[in-house]
Write a protein that binds this DNA or RNA. Structure first.
Length: 631
DNA sequence: ATAGGGTTAG
């Protein structure tokens, strides 16, 4: 036994024999811990409840390399009279672990004693309630609620906030509201945490409106209040609101954004493609000592790639010291949506070399990369590797990629066969991928079949009608066009309105088709006329084949000319200097005519233009596009 | 001694 290590603690505690126990903080290895434990047993000091408690505390609450819950439990079981402190320690440790049921066992054990020594106290209940919350055990949770009333602990902020949270997590939101309202009566008010739990609770049940109401009403707001609300907006697709609240937080200055704030706001920045704000977030982290670890790093990489700056994403990725599977997924997906398939595959290899196994999400991104680059055989072999080598079961998302991959490459029959072969019923995403491929390759036979299936599922979704109508139009089958449009009207189907937006000086400007609401509308339309004239001079003829209304060519041309992405590009041209890359985001896929037009604009105006559509990026430069017209 | 907020995906 290594007595030199024990020496210092022996002398330190010599004057307090009753509380004497070795200092576990200096414990470096498991072996060392066992030695200390053995010494305690040998000297009989293990019978000192304080010494045993300290040992349990060390085993249970240390960080991973030292934590050993089973060991802690063994020591506990050997205590002749476990004290309240040890019970609490273990209950807490297990409620934080992946075995929270153990907390409930211990708590039951503890309440069976019910003597003066081991009566549960205000330190016991938060953890027990947390365990119930994790397990979703409402019945047990209610029993615990009864007990905490019995012990008169319903005036403690820690207990109450966990009680409310337990009800939220168990899906009993009404009970949570009742518990919260009762808590307001007692004088734990001013407890920010209690309000935060409610804000988070409303977010979890999807009621962002009431979450905001709580947020506005609460007497004080901590950084967590802001974070909950910002991430609540972002998680429910209210990206503009998320960014606005983030700005308000900075304006108000009462609390500073922290690590979690940045991680929470970045998905909203990504979705909106707001590169300037995203760069600012990155800069803020650097200036305020917020550590860019694998989590924040992943969010930043995703932000850079979704904001069109894939080079910055790669640069950040390569400089990151800490990478987890999500970090790798973020960069691979970024490269995939930018059409840089070779690099995506290269990072996929590097990921495995670095010892991180691909997850099912990784495969979605890798297959997307193959799909956007037309690497059909590569995609097929990767799909096989996923199943055979990595033993992953393909999900509907993977089939979606494969159907897209085959269909886009024109192998429509194989795509349809694969779709019918999968176990799950094809959902609308798979069907739409196949329908899109049919439209691209003019396969009306499979197209009709797929559209019919989609319409059976949801006759009010306009997308299948539009695709069908387009296909008929390109075959000049005007009866088909009429019938489809009639059917669409009868079913009151609606199509998603297309819109595009662009960030200029940190502000987002949004446009719909033929938009005239912008303050600079006159200048925008002058620019559009100028573009039209320049294009005419170089001999460009608008591609009206996608306009499926029967109207004369002049009207078709004007309908095309006012597509939202063209308006956004025109606005970009008049609002930024020539060196600035114009970055436009569109909610739907870009149309053929806009694609051709923007290619020419990039040459005629010597501008780099980046357009993100629903599925991928198009980098336009000097008359050509990075997608090589394959999308 | 204790509580509340976070990243990737067809």
């Amino acid at each position: 036994m290594n007595s030199t290590v024990l020496q210092p603690t022996t002398t330190t505690h010599a004057s307090h024999p009753s509380t004497f126990f070795p200092d576990f903080k200096h414990c470096k290895t498991k072996q060392h811990l066992t030695q200390l434990h053995a010494k305690l047993i040998k000297t009989g000091r293990i019978r000192d409840p304080l010494a045993a408690a300290e040992l349990i505390r060390f085993c249970a609450l240390s960080n991973p390399p030292h934590q050993d819950l089973q060991y802690a439990l063994q020591v506990f079981d050997q205590m002749p009279q476990p004290n309240c402190f040890s019970f609490n320690t273990l209950i807490r440790a297990f409620s934080d672990s992946n075995d929270p049921l153990q907390s409930l066992f211990l708590f039951t054990h503890m309440t069976q004693y019910d003597d003066v020594l081991v009566k549960p106290n205000k330190y016991t209940f938060p953890s027990v309630l947390k365990a119930c919350a994790k397990l979703g055990c409402l019945k047990q949770g209610k029993q615990v609620h009864g007990l905490l009333l019995k012990y008169g602990l319903d005036n403690d902020g820690f207990v109450l906030s966990n009680l409310v949270r337990m009800y939220v997590m168990c899906g009993a939101f009404n009970d949570a509201v009742v518990a919260f309202d009762l808590s307001k009566m007692s004088d734990v008010m001013g407890e920010v945490v209690l309000w935060n739990v409610m804000v988070d609770g409303y977010v979890r049940v999807g009621d962002v409106g009431n979450a905001r109401k709580m947020f506005d009403e609460m007497p004080q707001r901590s950084v967590v209040s802001w974070n909950s609300m910002i991430s609540g907006y972002a998680q429910h697709g209210l990206f503009v609101e998320a960014l606005e609240l983030f700005r308000e937080m900075q304006r108000e200055c009462s609390v500073a954004p922290n690590y979690v704030t940045l991680v929470s706001v970045l998905p909203a920045v990504s979705r909106l493609g707001a590169l300037e704000i995203g760069r600012w977030v990155h800069f803020y982290a650097g200036r305020n000592g917020v550590k860019v670890d694998s989590v924040l790093g992943s969010a930043l990489i995703d932000m850079y790639s979704k904001c069109g700056s894939i080079d910055e994403a790669v640069q950040l990725f390569d400089s990151l010291l800490e990478k987890n599977v999500i970090t790798w997924n973020s960069i691979i997906n970024g490269l995939a949506i930018h059409g840089r398939a070779d690099e995506a595959l290269c990072y996929f290899e590097k990921m495995q070399e670095s010892g991180i196994s691909p997850s099912d999400v990784t495969y979605i991104s890798v297959l997307t990369a193959c799909s956007h680059a037309g690497l059909v055989d590569k995609g097929l072999s990767i799909f096989n590797k996923m199943v055979q080598t990595d033993g992953l079961t393909p999900r509907i998302e993977h089939y979606g990629c494969m159907v897209d991959l085959l269909g886009r490459a024109g192998r429509l029959q194989e795509a349809e066969e694969l779709m019918l072969k999968m176990l799950d019923e094809p959902d609308d995403v798979v069907l739409k991928a196949l329908l899109g491929a049919c439209k691209k390759h003019g396969n009306i036979e499979i197209g009709e079949r797929v559209a019919k299936r989609l319409l059976e599922k949801d006759p009010e979704d306009g997308a299948p009608y539009v695709a069908l109508s387009n296909m008929y139009a390109s075959l000049a089958d005007w009866d088909g066009v009429m019938d489809t449009r009639l059917m669409m009207r009868q079913n009151e189907a609606k199509k998603d309105p297309g819109c595009s937006w662009i960030e200029v000086n940190g502000a987002i400007h949004e446009f719909v088709v033929a938009d005239e609401s912008h303050a600079k509308t006159n200048y925008i339309y002058m620019m559009l006329d100028e573009i039209k004239e320049k294009l005419r001079l170089v001999g460009y003829k608008p591609d009206t084949s996608q306009v499926h209304l029967r109207m004369d060519d002049r009207d078709k041309e004007s309908a095309l000319q006012h597509h939202s992405e063209k308006i956004a590009v025109a606005f970009g041209l008049i609002s930024t200097t020539r060196e600035t890359t114009i970055r436009v985001v569109k909610n739907l896929r870009i149309c053929d005519d806009c694609h051709s037009t923007i290619k020419l604009v990039s040459r005629l105006y010597r501008r780099r233009i980046v357009v993100r559509d629903r599925k991928r990026f198009h980098h336009f430069e000097n008359g050509s596009c990075s997608c090589m017209d394959y999308w």
